[in-house]
Amino acid sequence: MTPTKIADLKAVPSTTDEFIKGLWRENPVFVQVLGMCPTLAVSNSAINALAMGLATAFVLVMSNILISSLRNFIPKQVRMASYILIIATFVTIVEYGIQAISVELHKNLGAFISLIVVNCIILSRAEAFASKNTIWKSAIDGLGMGLGFVLALSCLGAVREILGNASIFGITVLPESFQEWIIMILPAGGFFTLAFWLFLFNYFKLKKAKA
């Protein structure tokens, strides 16, 4: 058993709390600033961002469940290797799944699907949460964090696709005469958009903290 902190004894977080924290208070992208590689690289269109987010969320939930159920059997010395093995299993499933659904999407996401194996959000949840908590809690935590990641990627992808391509999910939403901002679908646009969202998040957090 891991020693529990005094703060934890005072208020044991409820199930909804575990779920909500991943969406908002501890959002993996906007608050923890983890998983920057897929965030910046595949958020150039809403559909790519959503697919990447869902794939990661699936792997996150499944690996959290499996790691949590095996937490008493995995020796401390080889835990990282074991986690990676478990995560890689689910990434393989996802990769074949996406290939079966849409070859084009698989091409767009490219190597980034395989790279989910070393996604630091999944590894950090495995190490910091799933290895210490029950199966049910780990599943809820994974779902919250996964959906938080989907939310963040979709926010980025939507802004970048609307400004850079005048469309969202491939459907043109802005009038013909709109001048696309090419920079938004280039890598530089990813950095600008991420900075903009981080700014918004921190602005509202500070405002709330002051009030």
Binding site: I182, I183, L186
Partner: peptide, 8 residues
């Protein structure tokens, strides 16, 4: 540089 990348 921003304008160059955005509106080439």
């Amino acid at each position: 540089a921003f304008l160059q990348a955005a509106f080439p």
